[in-house]
């Protein structure tokens, strides 16, 4: 099944077994590159220098919980789509996550691979649309700047 955008997914979970399961599925069944981390701190360091399109993070991690981590991701790279993976349905935390970390999606363990693929694909699209929009906005801003420049030159010529 061809995907419209190939990109990179970052997965962060303190449990190796979850990382291995996610990575194996993504590598065998999708065109996306995978970067995996057991430590949210290491993940943030990598995020600063690498191109990441979608971040999928576990909620319960010993060093930093998934919501705080995704909040940091938003601060550092607002265009990256953020997905929280949680082990136990917890409405209170879901609401907190959506409000605080500006979540793109919320998934529960055990997850369904087909659903996961769809959520990541939509996240990829969202990231690339936001990137594109940003590029268009800065192009517009540049054009607008040039226009203002021309206008002031014209005004100076005729006054």
């Amino acid at each position: 099944m061809p995907e419209r955008t190939a990109g990179t997914v970052m997965i962060v979970d303190d449990e190796e077994m979850v990382l291995t399961a996610l990575r194996t599925f993504l590598e065998l069944e999708t065109p996306w590159a995978v970067r995996e981390f057991t430590s949210p701190h290491d993940a943030l360091e990598a995020l600063a220098t690498e191109r990441i399109d979608v971040v999928l993070a576990d909620f319960m991690m010993p060093d930093m919980d998934g919501i705080s981590f995704l909040k940091e991701v938003r601060g550092q790279k607002p265009h990256v789509s953020r997905i929280l993976l949680t082990g136990y349905a917890d409405v209170e935390n879901a609401i907190r996550a959506i409000n605080e970390a500006g979540l793109y999606h919320y998934l529960e363990k055990p997850w369904d691979n087909e659903h996961l693929r769809m959520v990541i694909r939509n996240g990829m699209e969202r990231s690339s649309l936001v990137n594109e929009l940003d590029a268009r906005i800065s192009a517009l801003e540049q054009a607008n700047g040039e226009l203002l420049e021309v206008r002031s030159r014209l005004i100076r010529m005729f006054l």
Partner: peptide, 25 residues
């Protein structure tokens, strides 16, 4: 019960995903 549900869902999540991957493979 809440704690055990949470604890079980991590290995269960891996098992369910791996089972699906094995079928596809």
């Amino acid at each position: 019960v809440a704690g055990v549900a949470h604890e079980v869902n991590t290995p269960l999540g891996a098992l369910a995903s791996n089972h699906d991957v094995i079928k596809r493979a």
